[in-house]
Amino acid sequence: MKGPQNYSQKLMIWIPVLLIVLLLTVTISITIGSADIDMMTVWLVIGSNIPFLGDGMEQTWKDSTETIIWNIRMPRIILGMLVGAALAMAGAIYQGVLRNPLADPFILGVSSGSALGAALVLLFGFESMVLGQFTLPVVAFGSGLLTLFVVYTLARINYRLQMETLILAGVVVQAFIASMLSLILALSDEKMQTIMYWMMGSLSLTDWSYNRVIFPFVLLTILFVTFLTRELNMLALGEEAAYHSGVSVQKVRLILLVVASLLTGVAVSVSGTIGFVGLIIPHMIRLLFGSDYRIILPLSVLGGAIFLVGADTIARTILEPRELPIGIITAFLGAPFFGYLLRKKKSNYF
């Protein structure tokens, strides 16, 4: 652990750098796509949609161009940023709290629970009158949290939470849910494809409404967690160390786990289970900038956003007009990196 100057200095340099990279990624992403629209038109459309700036502008392009840029590409990119940020942050928190380098946002069964809820909604074609198109995300979110609750209850012995027990409980519950999912898939006939597609995760077919709902949530959570980074540092050192430095271990741990699970639940509910982001982004940041969570958390948020927007851009353009499932891209880029990490592990950086 270095002194406070050191960490704030690092952040002063790297947050702006990553912000610029993110801006560049978004710029490239909005400019390229399956539809042939030249760069100039893309930026005119965006400009015209910015309040004040675009008020005097005249529309010289087709309505369909406007729709493609502003109602398809833009919300998709923003959703990618939010989901990437949420998953990477959740992954960083899990890795710190559970003190396990293999921890990712799905380790405690939140994603399995969400997938089961989503599969049931898809299988029965259930749609609530009140929730409308939000039926599926809300059910997925709810069932994800329910699963977390079950895992937590299983793992709590004598009012104490052992991290190893928690991970084991997560594995067991996931295995059980996986069997139910397989059963649903076996019985689902023609709905199989839809369910499978949901489980693989995707950012396509989104619109502004999802962003409006999850944007404030993700933002507030990120701000909230930045107040807990010092405690996370202590926890990552070990329970004893944390206890002796005055951290209320059980309480902080629970708060962090719940927050990380909420983030995961929100991300999964709107985009399915997109793998690898939550696992490798925190590792990458840790590898590059050291194991101080005051640095890891904010930089993971930016790194996750960059990685997912980039991966989604590849997924939707590389074989255009086809779409590839984004999970292919994240794993294709993520797996070699993970191999590299394993080689690197000699230096024992975790």
Partner: peptide, 24 residues
């Protein structure tokens, strides 16, 4: 193929056929 939404909007089809209406 799974097709990008932009593609459909740009192609602006005159008619849309759905094959899954019997179970959705």
């Amino acid at each position: 193929p799974q097709v990008n939404e932009e593609e459909v909007i740009q192609a602006n089809p005159d008619v849309i056929f759905l094959t899954y209406a019997s179970y959705v």
